[in-house]
């Protein structure tokens, strides 16, 4: 890619892709952790679901 024309636009396009996908992945992972913590808290209080929490990932 020597003497790259419009290098800034190419870098910006890939950077935007990485940032948007990174934010999406981070949001899904963090939400999953938060939901598992909530479920565990409810189960500790005796409001367990009829299934084991491990079933839900």
């Amino acid at each position: 890619m020597g003497g790259v024309d419009h290098l800034g636009f190419i870098i910006a396009a890939y950077a935007v892709t990485v940032v948007v996908l990174g934010a999406l992945i981070g949001w899904i992972v963090l939400e999953g952790r938060s939901l598992r913590r909530q479920l565990a808290r409810l189960e500790r209080r005796g409001y367990g679901s009829r299934r084991k929490s491990g079933d839900a990932g």
């Binding site: 899904i28 999953g32 479920l39 409810l42 409001y47 679901s49 839900a56 990932g57």
Partner: peptide, 27 residues
């Protein structure tokens, strides 16, 4: 492939959210 991974993970989250809601309503 990335869509498949993220969709499965998000579906698991949604199932958990509905399970928590059901437990909360039962409680």
């Amino acid at each position: 492939g990335l869509f498949g991974v993220l969709h499965l993970m998000a579906m698991k989250n949604e199932i958990l959210r509905r399970r928590i809601r059901a437990i909360g309503m039962r409680a």
